[in-house]
Design a protein around this nucleic acid. Structure first.
Lengths: 143, 143
DNA sequence: CTTGACCTTGCCATTGTGGGAAGCCCCATC
DNA sequence: GATGGGGCTTCCCACAATGGCAAGGTCAAG
C-alpha cells in the first residue's frame, strides 16, 4: 500500500501519516527502493485506530499511550478504562465552561434591544461590569 | 503607565499586549524617549475589554469587530447582538459535539471491566467497530 | 517515450500563548 | 557616583495539529 492508499483506507491524510511518523506516534514505514513508504493491513488498522481516537478527542500524546496499550497483549483493561474516564471527565469540565460562556452570551443578547440605537448592554458588560457572573475562569478560554 | 502596570491593570500579559499591538488589534502605544511603551487609562480600559471578550471565548478576529463597534459611538446594538448570538450558537454546537464524545467515552468506560485482564471493549471499539454511534463528525475534534 | 498521477522532502501559515536571551534603562541604596 | 535589581526592548523558538505549496523524482498507462 502506498501512503495515498493507506490514507484513503484509514481516513488519515497522507500529510498526517508522515507527521505521525515524524513525531514517533507510529513507527517509520518500510520503503521501496525508490523511497516510497509502504504500508500493510496492520498499519492501516493502526491508522484507523488513531483516527477514531482523534475523533473521540484524544490528544495525540494520549493516543500514544492508547497505542502502547493496544499493542501490549497483556495490558490491563483498567489502564485503558482510566484513560477513557479521564478524557470523559475533561470533556465534562470543558462542557461546563462552554456552557457558562454560552449562557452569559445568551443572557447579554437577550438583554440587548438589537435595534438601530447605539446603547448596547453587551458592550457595557464587556467594558467593566462582571460579565454576568458566568464568565469563565482565566484559563477556561475555549478554542 | 508602563506595559507591566498596564498588564496588571488589565489582566492581559505584557507579552500579549505587544502581540495585540503587533497584529493590529490595538493601536501602537506611545513611547517614551527611551522607547518604553506608555499607556493611559483608556488603553487599560480597552485591554480589559479585550480580556473579557477573550474570557467569553471570542476569537481575536471577532474582538477586532467588537472593538470597532465599541469605539463607534453610533453603532447599532443589533450588530453587537448578532455577534454575541453567533458566538453563543457556536458554543452550543461545540457543546453538542463534546457531549457526544463524552457520552461515547463514558459508555465505553462503563462497558469495560477495568480489572487486570487484557480484554477491553474500549480498544475493541477503537479498533474497528462503530465508536458507539456518538462519535463526532470528522471536523468536530475538540482542543 | 510521454504524460499525468503520485510520491518525496522541506518550508510556511495558522492561533494564542509562553519561554528565553541579549541588551538597554530607571530607580534606589550605599 | 557607582552598583544592583528589576523592568523594558526586540528577536527567536516552542507548542498542537493541520493544510498548502513548490521542486523534483517515480510509476504506470497509453
Amino acid at each position: 500500500m502506498n501512503i495515498g492508499e493507506a490514507a484513503r483506507a484509514s481516513g488519515v491524510s497522507a500529510k498526517m501519516i508522515r507527521y505521525y511518523e515524524e513525531t514517533g506516534l507510529i513507527r517509520p514505514a518500510a520503503r521501496t527502493a525508490a523511497g516510497y513508504r509502504t504500508y500493510g493491513e496492520r498499519d492501516a488498522h493502526e491508522l484507523r485506530f488513531i483516527r477514531r481516537a482523534r475523533d473521540l478527542g484524544f490528544p495525540v500524546a494520549e493516543i500514544a499511550e492508547l497505542l502502547a496499550l493496544w499493542r501490549d497483549r497483556s495490558r490491563k483493561s483498567a489502564d485503558v478504562k482510566r484513560l477513557a474516564a479521564e478524557r470523559a471527565a475533561e470533556f465534562r469540565r470543558k462542557i461546563a465552561a462552554l456552557e457558562a460562556m454560552a449562557k452569559t452570551l445568551e443572557h447579554l443578547a437577550a438583554c440587548c434591544a438589537g435595534d438601530d440605537r447605539p446603547d448596547c448592554p453587551i458592550l457595557e458588560e464587556l467594558t467593566g461590569g462582571n460579565a454576568g457572573g458566568a464568565a469563565a475562569s482565566p484559563d477556561a478560554r475555549a478554542q
